[in-house]
């Protein structure tokens, strides 16, 4: 092993720093075409969420009865709906309500859950026990049921749906963070720092936090994929944006009535949701590969 380790180490470049890191990330991307496609898909979706005008010059609400229920073809890559509205334009404009708030909600969930987990991991025994029990109970409740309960209380609407989905994940984030903090806190290198007289806050900032947040980020990315699906499901059930506004789940629901005649109305927005969720999940997995490379 000694020979192997030194052999491996000798191959790697000696310089450290952000430049090498960027180079490593680029190399990782190029060696995994699936990952490259995923990054492109996510970037496109996010651009569509904030700047839909870049992709289409059409109006998502402009009806044209003469051109209703046209199948995908030139001019209408995703076809048109029963009112003649261009489906592609509607899907592009649907990215906003579907993604923007979701990302913010998950981020809020990560911060909240991360703090809760951190507190639990550092707190005295009884407080940790209490938080751990609450986390356990929340985790046993399916996240969709939690979201539904929150939607009932908050009322429907895009922001409320995203909030409901984000809050439903807090327990999951808290559990990961707590486990990581406990792992790092009992590690030999933290003990070593303490044995050398390091103060508590310094150990926390220099050793515990930097070593604990990595897995939380990986889980956060993974649950962003799930959150996109959950937001779409709630939109499909009719709790999201109000009817004329395009939202991916709602678009699928609207296409339900034309299931036998106009397949594209459900298929295209559904495929979009699946593609984004798949891409996000792939990126989440890559974080592990990236950490493994370092």
């Amino acid at each position: 092993m000694t020979g192997l380790v030194t052999g491996l180490a000798a191959e790697a470049p000696l310089t450290a720093g952000p430049g090498r890191r960027a180079l490593g990330a680029a190399r990782l991307l190029l060696s995994r075409p699936g990952l490259l496609v995923s990054v492109v898909v996510v970037l496109l979706a996010l651009t569509a969420a904030f700047l839909p005008g870049l992709f289409t010059s059409g109006d998502p609400l402009a009806a044209a009865p003469a051109r209703s229920l046209l199948p995908p073809g030139p001019g209408h890559p995703f076809g048109t709906d029963q009112l003649g509205r261009d489906l592609f334009t509607r899907v592009v404009y649907g990215a906003g309500p579907s993604l923007k708030v979701t990302v913010v909600a998950v981020a809020a969930g990560v911060v909240l859950g991360g703090l809760l987990g951190l507190v639990a991991g550092l707190a005295v025994r009884w407080l940790d026990d209490v938080i751990a029990r609450v986390i356990e109970v929340l985790l046993a409740v399916p996240s969709l049921l939690l979201s539904l309960t929150l939607v009932t209380a908050l009322g429907s609407g895009t922001v409320n749906v995203a909030l409901a989905v984000g809050l439903a994940n807090v327990a999951g984030f808290a559990r990961i963070m707590r486990a990581e903090v406990l792992r790092v806190r009992t590690s030999a290198y933290v003990e070593a720092a303490e044995a050398f007289g390091a103060r508590r806050h310094s150990v926390l900032l220099r050793h515990v936090l930097p070593n604990a947040y990595g897995p939380l980020l990986a889980v956060a990315t993974l649950s962003t994929g799930t959150a996109v699906l959950a937001v779409a499901a709630l939109g499909f059930l009719g709790y999201g944006a109000a009817p004329p506004a395009p939202e991916w789940g709602a678009l699928v629901a609207q296409g339900r009535d034309y299931l036998s005649s106009a397949w594209w109305l459900t298929t295209m927005p559904g495929l979009t949701v699946a593609a984004v969720a798949l891409a996000v999940n792939r990126i989440a997995r890559a974080e592990g590969e990236w950490a493994g490379l370092r």
Partner: peptide
Amino acid sequence: PSLGVALPTFWVGLVLLQVVSF
């Protein structure tokens, strides 16, 4: 499996309906 967890459930149902039933 990674495909399976990324597909929206409601959409899978609709696609099945479309293909198998209609």
